[in-house]
Amino acid sequence: MKPIIKINEITKKFKNLTAVDNLTININEGENTAILGPNGAGKTTLVEMIEGIQSPNSGEISILNMNWKNNEKELRKIIGLSLQETRFIDKITVYETMLLFASFYGLKKEKAEEMVILSGLNDKKDSLTMNLSGGQKQKLSLGIALINDPKIIILDEPTTGLDPHARREIWYTLKEQKKKNATLLLTTHYMEEAEFLCQRIIIMYQGKIIADGKINDLLKYHGARELIEFSFYGKKEPQFLFDLPDVKDVNIDFEESKIRLYVNNISKILPIVLTAANKAKFKILDLQCRKMNLDDLFLSLTGKSLNE
């Protein structure tokens, strides 16, 4: 796959805060990429620089060998985007809004009608945007992002704040659009969203990329695939856990009284853990065993949750 977006050593600072710190990545054509990270990680700043909405203090961004300084008009036509937060003109209907945006791209009325249907808003076609629910507004925003059949789709937290049903509806609309072989770049807090829609995951933290790759590769690279999680009483660190064989990492959260053991084979390790706890007269509560997910990976890398 050849790179469609090349980001080379970009930095963006706001007064004393470095939102994006000397970052270099390529996004490949036809690839679906999710950028994950907690609030303030620099995800939105990064995508807004790719969208040409913000300019980096240093570094270069090239999209299909074009840049925002010289090729804004051409780039606007091939990119479809949805911002983190957009409100619409209150007293304008869904169809009129779609028609307005279609006209910006020089598209006919039929395209606006088609996108109203594709966005699942046909029954709300004549509703004023002020009367739409959060999910319906996001659908409209997505419809507008896709109206020009873009080569590159950039979505900034497209489902934040939506209920699971509305979130899934948006995912399926995006899956449909993917059949047109567009390149998708999205930011999200939700690992399920990233896992459902994207092959490649980029994890950002404090303006830097701390992990980049396919989900399985990332988990493999970390050296553990499974997780044993339990609660405990007391404030004393259970030293025996650090002496157990085949435990890749131990995470102790005294605030929540929780311990996480990162392992490769639960069925092999769990009896050893239980025997050792019994011998040390350590009481294990609320035991859970499961496969590791991206949140666990993020937690093991930074000590913080993605949703913080």
């Binding site: 969208e51 040409g52 909405i53 804004e72 008009k73 606007r76 036509k77 990119i79 985007l81 911002l83 937060e85 957009t86 409100r87 619409f88 003109i89 945006f101 910006f104 791209y105 507008i144």
Partner: peptide, 14 residues
């Protein structure tokens, strides 16, 4: 304030 202006310019509106 509604961030609609940036969305319209990014559309691309003249």
């Amino acid at each position: 304030i509604k961030k609609l202006l940036r969305r319209m310019v990014a559309a691309p509106m003249k």
